[in-house]
Nucleic acid binder design. Structure first.
Length: 297
DNA sequence: GTGACACCTGGTAG
DNA sequence: ACTACCAGGTGTC
């Protein structure tokens, strides 16, 4: 077992980071968290100001959990107003993960119009059916399937995992990645706008899905995904920064049009700056938390 | 360039 | 048990 000592000035909350909806495949057994990163099962827990982990290198853990981000400085930069100051005081130690881009892309294609428990189920089923089985600590885990496995799968096989109409999007994307037509990893090297343009070519990938993939796996911390929760947060707390008619309009319907999405998202990017993605995650979590606690109508 | 509307299916509140 | 409704949106007319 190895450990990483956590600095008081660089807050990190493992549980919050894994449970805030950016990733769907971690499970807690006893007081340990288990998840597959690459082809290995990572076992990790947090206690008394340190992280203890097994089966992974220190470098990998730091990389995956975004421990290299200067969170204190990031929070300082995004806390531009009273609301955000309150949010960063309340939500402590949430970090943006650096997930595998391929897995992240498929996960968010699957995530459209689904609840989080349902997304977890779908992905678990995909991994069980098409991934590699790994035994670790007396438990069974599965890796996320390679593009090749999904590309060679039939639509019916994918649909069996409850993907529904998403099955054809996943299959099509898997084929593009397997053939090399799309190199997901290489998008890391491109700028936000260009990487986003390439993702948007894919069927089943709209602005929201693209922004999630950019933020959670492609190192684009300025990406500002706008889902129903973030939309609510913006309407509630940032209406004064936006046009009144526009706010009324987006408030009146469930999902925004492309233009409306872009207005909301670019507001986030411009207002919060190069770490807008962090601002988004904090707003998202705060809004959901308050909803669960019944503090919001 | 916008705006309804359907979409697969599982979870969950009544 | 059974129904109704909604879900981290997107593609299509």
């Amino acid at each position: 077992m190895e450990e990483i000592r956590l600095d008081d000035h660089q807050p990190f909350d493992l549980e919050l980071t894994l449970c805030c909806g950016q990733t769907f495949r971690w499970s807690k057994i006893g007081d340990w968290w288990y998840g597959t990163v690459g082809d290995k099962v990572l076992k990790i827990r947090q206690a008394y100001g340190k992280l203890e982990f097994e089966n992974a290198s220190r470098k990998m853990v730091e990389e995956y959990f975004g421990l290299k981000d200067d969170l204190q400085e990031i929070l300082r930069q995004i806390a531009k107003d009273q609301h955000m100051q309150r949010v960063v005081r309340t939500v402590k130690g949430l970090r943006i993960l650096r997930q595998n881009p391929w897995e992240c892309l498929v996960s968010y294609i699957c995530a459209t119009y689904k609840s989080i428990p349902a997304i977890s189920r779908m992905l678990h089923c995909l991994c069980k059916k098409f991934g590699e089985k790994i035994f670790f600590d007396g438990y069974v885990f599965y890796t996320f399937p390679e593009a090749e496995s999904l590309a060679k799968a039939g639509l019916a096989d994918l649909a069996e995992c409850g993907l529904g109409y998403r099955a054809k999007y996943v299959l099509e994307t898997a084929k593009k990645v397997y053939s090399g037509e799309l190199q997901v990893e290489s998008l890391r090297l491109k700028g936000f706008k260009e990487a986003r343009r390439e993702l948007l070519i894919l069927k089943g990938v709209g602005l929201k899905v693209a922004d999630c993939v950019l933020l959670f796996s492609l190192e684009k911390l300025e990406a500002f995904p706008v889902d129903v929760w973030v939309k609510r947060a913006l309407i509630r707390h940032y209406a004064s920064h936006l046009d009144g008619n526009f706010i009324r309009k987006v408030a009146s319907k469930r999902s925004p049009s492309i233009r409306e999405y872009e207005l909301l998202s670019s507001f986030g990017r411009n207002y919060f700056g190069k770490f807008a993605g962090y601002a988004q995650e904090y707003l998202y979590h705060f809004e959901r938390q308050n909803f669960k606690l019944n503090l919001l109508p």
